[in-house]
Design a protein around this nucleic acid. Structure first.
Lengths: 329, 329
DNA sequence: CTGTTAGCGCTTTCAG
DNA sequence: CTGAAAGCGCTAACAG
């Protein structure tokens, strides 16, 4: 078997209590004893059994991260921020995919609870959050990222979706665009709604009409972007400028354009939310709204950790991070 | 505190041992007793403390997955396969990023060992694997995916890299191409080497010369693809057809072309390894070699689980999955 | 078929 | 400043 505190203790000629104290940087251990124990730890090649510690302390130093989908550049950029911040604090991450369904979320949450994670960070899969209340029951702190949900309040990290799309649309308006198509996500998601609101507000503030004929909603996926772009292009009066509410729909729309280049009624130009590595490669793109993805993750991690360690204000707090407008020259 | 087996036991009027037996689907429990216990579990709202169980059984039903980088579509597609397969078997996944460095791998491996994971799946960050031997010391089963390393043998899941690039190059040769540029990854990685070998073999088998002037090696990243493409285009006699050894370099090369469209010496066409969602959107692409990413992950997971459960052959085994040639019409 | 009991490896009072 | 001892919640012999 592996070497335990007991072995270290006898090797150092002290009690297990003392070893434990050294292990936990507990003050009140004579310097001489401490070095002796440290040596014994070296010599025996001791490695902490965190399971045993967790059983005793009921803290696992592990955080669960529930995402709608693993294969998703946006979510994984956030994950990276979470991981970096957590690791810096000595925590590890269990990443779980909910497969974009409440049922999946429930299952994974139950699993994470069984694993006794100290806290959970969630990118909600849907707009529904009633089932997250189970976490409150189980007394597991949670932080939401990217989206807000109905039926559950918790610390939340969002970006300025409204302001972001407003800025992008306004940018184009100032350069002369007067008519915009819109390809949006599922309005059940707060992000989709907020980005739509920003779009509308920009039009309104510049005395432009929103033309419902060319305002479409889908679901934030590539296929949906493709389909809606098709609908737009086949509408009675296809728009030339189109605001697209996220990266994946942007890809889908671009795909449509590329595949129909020949028989497109006219040239198109996109403004879109999200700026990824590849955004710059997508043709027909003029402005993108970059989200601080890693920072979102890191912020969520910090929020959660402070919650776990008893810090943080009484009520739930929401942090809104700024987006950044990127224009292609 | 939470409800424990003890509570369930007294609620059902049995001993904790019996509760444990029911919990573990142990045979040899009277049907009546079993239902009584089950009811008690329901009534009390009991939830297993897996930490305690793990301490006792020294199995955590958790697997570590060490990847070079989290924000990487290829790796995450593999991760998805791993996660699905593991979940189906009742295991969870801790995903760790090594930040593409041996030092990072060491750190994370140590961490995973402390977490007492039952096994580890690794996508090696480099060609070096000496440090993986620590896992053998710690008696933690490991499976490598995608790449092989020096200094460590273990069950490994790879794809037919050689055959894959061979097929792509041959396809173009048959359509008349006689001169190929090559943009490859770091030859320290087995994947990079094998893909290069396949490239060479295809040329050789069709009596074509490899022109070293237009054969470049980099590191599988976007920037590298960009740089090497630049070198190729500025070489004395730029190639018209270029084989690119992975997705990210493909992106980089495409980026270069798009940015230099005006002053490019001639038209170019790419053949490349990997087929992602976006590959179809990258212009100048003619053939791609698709890897069965999810299947790679699932296979690795299965291999590991059978190893954990004492199955599998004596020696380490290597599985090679097939790639698929996709042509754009 | 069921209960008793002894730990798994660690932390943490409570004495000394 | 250090040690003895009591568990954390669970499982697995071993009896009965």
């Amino acid at each position: 078997m592996a070497v335990t505190v007991k072995d270290v203790a006898s090797a150092a000629g002290v009690s297990t209590a003392t070893v434990s104290r050294v292990l936990n940087d507990n003050p009140g251990v004579a310097a001489a004893t401490r070095t002796r124990v440290l040596r014994a730890i070296q010599d025996t090649g001791y490695r902490m059994n965190t399971i045993a510690r967790s059983l005793k302390t009921s803290r696992t130093r592990t955080i669960g991260f529930l995402v709608p989908e693993i294969v998703n550049e946006f979510f994984m950029n956030i994950a990276r921020g979470v991981e970096d911040a957590l690791r810096a604090a000595g925590y590890s991450l269990i990443i779980c995919s909910a497969n974009e369904a409440v049922s999946g979320e429930k299952k994974q949450l139950e699993l994470l609870a069984e694993k006794c994670v100290d806290g959970i960070i969630i990118i909600p899969s849907t707009g529904q959050g009633e089932h997250y209340r189970r976490l409150t029951e189980l007394d597991i702190p949670a932080v939401l990222v990217d989206r807000r949900v109905d039926g559950f309040v918790a610390d939340t990290v969002l970006v300025e979706n409204r302001e972001g799309s407003y800025a992008a649309v306004e940018y184009l308006i100032k350069r002369g665009t007067t008519r915009f198509g819109f390809i949006g996500g599922d309005p059940a998601l707060t992000t989709a709604r907020e980005r739509y609101q920003g779009f509308l507000a920009a039009l309104h503030d510049h005395s432009l009409e929103a033309d419902e004929e060319i305002i479409k909603f889908g679901d934030f996926h590539v296929e949906s972007g493709y389909t809606l772009m098709g609908e737009l292009m086949e509408s009675p009066r296809p728009p030339e400028h189109i605001f697209i509410a996220n990266y994946f729909m942007h890809i889908g729309a671009t795909k449509y354009v590329i595949e129909h280049l020949g028989d497109l009624p006219q040239a198109v130009q996109f403004a879109s939310f999200d700026d990824m590595e590849l955004s710059a490669l997508l043709g027909f793109s003029s402005v993108t709204v970059a989200q601080p993805m890693a920072e979102m993750g890191a912020t969520a991690a910090r929020l959660l950790l402070s919650r776990i360690n008893g810090g943080g204000p009484g009520g739930a707090q929401t942090l809104r991070l700024k987006t950044k407008l990127l224009t292609r020259s």
